[in-house]
């Protein structure tokens, strides 16, 4: 079965979930309705001929200020048929919620935590949804486009006092 047959098979088996598919530079992406993502993943993993047994990773994207604002891309790979497929869901709003696929692909666990930490995307039924890279008490989600890229003034001997005044650490 080729990758195009696989896409066709998803389209016929799950018409509610399938939205569209496109190809760019040889990468096949299937856009999926976010309400059905777990169902589609399970279908991709368990169906003979598809057998996408490995989820390489999950990437979150912020298209701010466009709407729908967020997207999640699941990179699936089939060991048996040596083919890869990207599943993509678009999530609207500033506080997006989507079902976790950890039950189907355990490898998605930490990637979903990363998406939660960096983008503030909530995952239903995730076993352990905590921040992963940023400290637990961090405010905001750094990889969002409306989160500014911070910087620190370079400290030289002549501006030491001025720079030190703005340092966040507690002063006696």
């Amino acid at each position: 079965m080729t990758i195009l047959d696989a896409v066709k098979s998803i389209e016929t088996a799950l018409p509610d979930a399938f939205e569209r598919a496109y190809e760019f530079r040889g990468d096949i992406t299937v856009v999926v309705n976010p309400a059905h993502i777990v169902e589609v993943c399970r279908y991709c993993r368990d169906t003979d001929g598809l057998h996408f047994d490995m989820c390489s990773g999950v990437t979150a994207i912020d298209y701010y200020p466009d709407e729908p604002r967020f997207a999640l891309v699941y990179h699936l790979y089939s060991m048996r048929h040596n083919m890869s497929l990207e599943l993509k869901v678009y999530l609207a709003g500033d506080e997006p919620v989507v079902d976790s696929v950890t039950g189907v692909y355990p490898s998605a666990n930490w990637f979903e935590r990363e998406a939660y930490d960096m983008f503030g995307i909530h995952f239903n039924n995730h076993p352990d949804l905590r921040r992963i890279l940023m400290p637990d008490d961090w405010e905001g989600h750094p990889l969002r486009k409306d989160y500014p890229l911070g910087y620190e003034t370079v400290q030289f001997s002549f501006n030491f006092d001025e720079v030190n005044k703005h340092k966040p650490y507690a002063k006696e």
Binding site: D27, S56, I61, V73
Partner: peptide
Amino acid sequence: KGEVYVRVESPRGELGCYLV
């Protein structure tokens, strides 16, 4: 405009880059 995913075999395993 576009989005691509590339994977290579790094010494540790699959190193992937998703570029938008």
